[in-house]
């Protein structure tokens, strides 16, 4: 796991998540901006998957449990598509908030993944 990339990812997910929550509370229904935030968060997660596959073989092994790391990463990958799908089923303001919650949850999970990779002694 590349540390600066993880921090960028957390920052994007937090900023995007807060934006969606604010938009939802401002009674906006999910629009291209909201779905774009989710798409960006998902794209960064896919990049993270590639990084996580290459890193252990490139002299950057995790200090913690690789299994736990992957459980977090795969769970995180599921969230943005699920939130987007649900948002399109019922396009209400609360669907926008749900998208924000999903992005914030991804931020927490990426931070947890960074901890597992860099500081956890398993």
């Amino acid at each position: 796991m590349i540390e600066w990339f993880a921090y960028v990812q957390v920052a994007v997910a937090v900023a995007g998540g807060l934006l969606c929550v604010v938009l939802g509370l401002a009674k906006r229904v999910p629009n291209d901006l909201v779905l774009g935030v989710l798409a960006l968060v998902e794209l960064l997660l896919v990049v993270q998957v590639v990084v996580a596959i290459i890193a252990p073989g490139a002299g950057n092994p995790p200090t913690g449990s690789l299994l736990e790391f992957w459980v977090y990463l795969i769970s995180a990958l599921l969230l943005p598509p699920a939130a987007a799908f649900w948002a399109l089923l019922e396009r209400s303001r609360w669907a926008t908030v749900v998208c924000g919650v999903a992005a914030l949850a991804v931020a927490v999970m990426v931070y947890r993944m960074l901890q597992i990779w860099t500081v956890q002694q398993a």
Partner: peptide, 27 residues
């Protein structure tokens, strides 16, 4: 309405708890 948000948070918590207990029990 806001019930969707509640359900979403429940779903995330369910996912987190499932993932965590899976790794704990396996490892």
């Amino acid at each position: 309405g806001i019930g969707r948000v509640l359900v979403a948070v429940y779903a995330v918590l369910a996912l987190a708890a499932t993932g965590r207990s899976f790794t704990q029990i396996v490892q």
